[in-house]
Amino acid sequence: MSNASPARKTRAAQWAYVILGLLVLIFVVLGVMIKVYKVPSGAMLPTLVPGDHVSATRGGEVHRGEVIVFPFPENPEQLFMKRVIGMPGDEIQFVDGRPIINGFRVPQCRVGRYDWEGQRHELFLEWIGDHVYGVLLDGPVDGGTCEKDIDCSGMQSCRGGICGMLQGPWRVPPGEVFVIGDNRMNSHDSRSWKGGIGSGVPISTVIGHVGRIVMGGFSGRTGTPMDGPPVLPAGAASLGPAMEKCLKEKPAVTTPPAR
Rank of each mutant, 00 (worst) to 15 (best):
Q167Y: 10
I203C: 02
G195E: 14
L166A: 09
I197A: 15
V179R: 03
I162P: 00
G164S: 10
S204A: 14
N183D: 03
R171G: 06
R171H: 15
D182W: 04
G168Q: 05
G175W: 00
G164Y: 05
V172N: 12
R171E: 11
D182M: 04
M185S: 05
G168C: 04
P173R: 09
C163N: 08
T205A: 05
V172G: 11
I162W: 03
Q167T: 07
K194Y: 04
R184S: 00
S199W: 10
V179M: 09
G164F: 01
S192I: 14
P202T: 03
G195I: 14
G161A: 13
F178S: 04
F178L: 09
G168T: 06
L166V: 04
Q167A: 12
S187K: 01
S190E: 09
T205D: 10
I197E: 15
G196I: 11
T205W: 01
V206H: 04
R191M: 07
Q167W: 10
S190T: 07
R171F: 10
W170K: 13
M185N: 13
N186C: 01
V172M: 13
S192M: 14
K194H: 13
V177C: 06
G175N: 09
V206P: 07
I203N: 00
S190Q: 08
F178N: 06
P174Q: 14
R184G: 02
G195W: 12
I197Y: 10
C163Q: 04
W193D: 07
G198F: 09
V206W: 05
M165Y: 12
V201K: 12
K194E: 15
V172I: 15
P173A: 10
P174L: 01
K194M: 14
R184Y: 08
K194P: 05
S190L: 10
E176A: 01
F178M: 09
